[in-house]
Write a protein that binds this DNA or RNA. Structure first.
Length: 500
RNA sequence: UCCCCGAUAGCUCAAUAGGUAGAGCGAGCGGCUGUUAACCGCUAGGUCGUAGGUUCGAGCCCUACUCGGGGAGCCA
């Protein structure tokens, strides 16, 4: 009976065949353990000498990591196996033996793993993240489809910029310059006037020269756009949406979250309402003594962690020098030292960045856009996601609706994910008044003729409307507690590094 | 565009004040009936990123370049 590891619990006591790849293997004389990976999970398979032919046993024992094979045997409950069941092997057929698989069950550097991304995808971490990404995307579609939204696929080739002077990738379109889309928003606004509630979902492209853990040049974004909605309505939509996505992941991918070491307690707190701050509130917080103290406390915490690590390292060294250690103790210490040094490196980066970020915050002036470090500070101070609303008009795109009560600000919002992750959503109410919009286009120095069709929307039955964009990789990184979003897409495109 | 850090064995990292290059993992061979990144013994594996320079002597100091990492700006 052919089955998959995921369904093994239904076959306890029965004979089944699993097909997959060797994830780990170890053997001790007459018994061998192959941890088999089949794309649905991991299962320990036990091969006892005498239960199968001797030459087959020898071949199985010699199989390298990631060799492909099928194993048949009796399923039995075994808590020591990764999935809770193991296979007592009675027959095996080797499909393709492997030698010198480059990714060993040890730590590897970023560069090495990226160059081996085609193989690295098979490892546990990328696999868990990939599964969660799948759930996130399914939950996104589910949420909008279940809430009366119509999917509209907006074009990827676009003639004009969506927002301001952002850098776009240009392509040669039969001799004419065209650009890769960085948002479907302007098109969505048209569609919202037809369907009422719409969304688009696809890859988006930014030629920003950003080399940080939060940036890719190609990433996936979902953008809802709704007719007859105001800012409070948008915030409510966004918090319900994000909460439903997190809930789905908690429901469908708990084992993956556990394997990844995600902060499940934090995720369980994600439900409406989220915190709401205005930009002015945020600016006040950043320049307050509270932030000075917060940053100082954080620095102290980092420093004491660093001191503890250094002491641990020094202790190991003195123990080594003192001699008299057994070989296995020395080996263990060597391993520990490497781990501790890596932790120390991370801490040193944090210690180096902290004063810079504290200074940026203290020098914050009303009118500037919130920087990445500013967002980090605000979100670190909250255990739930935070909406920041009403940014200065000058710092934002022309299409955002000027607040009629305070024309210095626009009716927009960013959603900062909790625990220092930073922005995952940016959105706004759109300017629906033709005169206001024309004025903004003029202020930005754009040519109104390029926006003729967009302006038409304000002439023919204009209504209050708005929407937002959510970055899929950033959301996945936040949920999975993965520090870099390049791990949250199968084949990442980064500013100056496209490996595969 | 700007700032900081790094490059030593296949991989991850050491090398105390310039003085003959080390460990773990991986690979190969052998041992072990229950292992969980198993364990034990042995073996192989390096023109220290590239090019110059200082020095009796450079992995270590200086200059330039290449590649990588983190961050600022900008953003999802």
């Amino acid at each position: 009976m052919k089955t998959t590891i995921h369904q093994l619990s239904a076959f306890a006591g029965q004979e089944v065949t699993l097909s997959g790849w060797v994830y780990h293997s170890r053997h001790s004389g007459k018994v061998a353990f192959i941890v088999l990976r089949d794309g649905t999970g991991l299962c320990q398979c036990v091969i006892e000498k005498g239960k199968i032919q001797d030459d087959l046993f020898d071949q199985l024992v010699r199989l390298g990591q990631e060799s492909s094979l099928s194993l048949s045997g009796i399923v039995r409950v075994e808590p020591r196996s990764p999935g809770g069941h193991e296979l007592a092997v009675t027959a095996a057929s080797i499909v393709c033996p492997t030698q010198d698989y480059p990714i060993t069950p040890k730590e590897h550097g970023v560069e090495f793993l990226m160059k081996n991304r085609h193989l690295h995808l098979r490892s546990q971490r990328p696999w868990c993240i990939g599964r969660i990404r799948h759930t996130v995307i399914d939950a996104i579609r589910r949420f909008f489809n279940d809430n009366g939204f119509t999917l509209v696929d907006t074009p990827i080739f676009t003639a004009a910029a969506g927002e301001g002077e952002q850098t776009l990738f240009s392509v040669d379109y039969f001799g004419k310059p065209m650009f890769l889309s960085q948002t479907g928003q302007l098109y969505l606004e048209c569609a919202a006037m037809s369907f009422g509630k719409v969304y688009c979902f696809g890859p988006t492209f930014r030629a920003e020269k950003s080399k940080t853990r939060r940036h890719l040049t190609e990433f996936w974004m979902v953008e809802p756009e709704v007719a007859y909605i105001d800012l409070p309505g948008l915030l409510e939509l966004a918090e319900n949406f994000v909460s439903s996505v997190v809930k789905r992941v908690l429901k469908d991918n708990r084992p993956e979250l556990e394997t990844l070491g995600a902060d499940i307690a934090m995720l369980e707190k994600i439900e409406p309402p989220f915190h709401r701050l205005t930009y002015t509130d945020a600016a006040d917080i950043l320049t307050s003594s509270r932030t000075v103290q917060f940053m100082a406390e954080q620095l102290e915490q980092f420093k004491s962690q660093k001191a503890a690590l250094e002491k641990q390292l020094a202790d190991i060294e003195t123990a080594d020098k003192a001699g008299g250690l057994k070989q296995w103790q020395k080996d263990k210490n060597a391993r520990l030292q490497i781990e501790l040094r890596a932790e120390l490196d991370e801490l040193n980066i944090k210690i180096e960045n902290n004063p810079k970020h504290a200074q940026l915050a203290s020098e914050f002036k009303w009118g500037k856009d919130l920087g990445g470090s500013d967002e980090t500070i605000i979100s670190l101070m909250h255990d739930k996601p935070v909406f920041v609303t009403h940014y200065p008009r000058e710092a934002k795109a022309f299409y955002m609706k000027t607040d009629r009560d305070n024309p210095k600000v626009v009716q927009n919002f960013d959603l900062l994910a909790s625990q220092g992750f930073g922005e995952i959503i940016g959105g706004s109410v759109r300017e629906d008044d033709l005169q206001y919009l024309l004025k903004r286009i003029e202020e930005e120095g754009y040519n109104p003729q390029s926006y003729e069709w967009y302006l038409d929307l304000r002439k023919h039955g204009s209504v209050p409307h708005g929407g937002f964009g959510l970055g899929v990789e950033r959301t996945v990184a936040w949920i999975t507690n993965e520090r870099h979003i390049r791990q949250c897409i199968a084949f990442p495109r980064m500013m100056d590094n496209v490996c595969i």
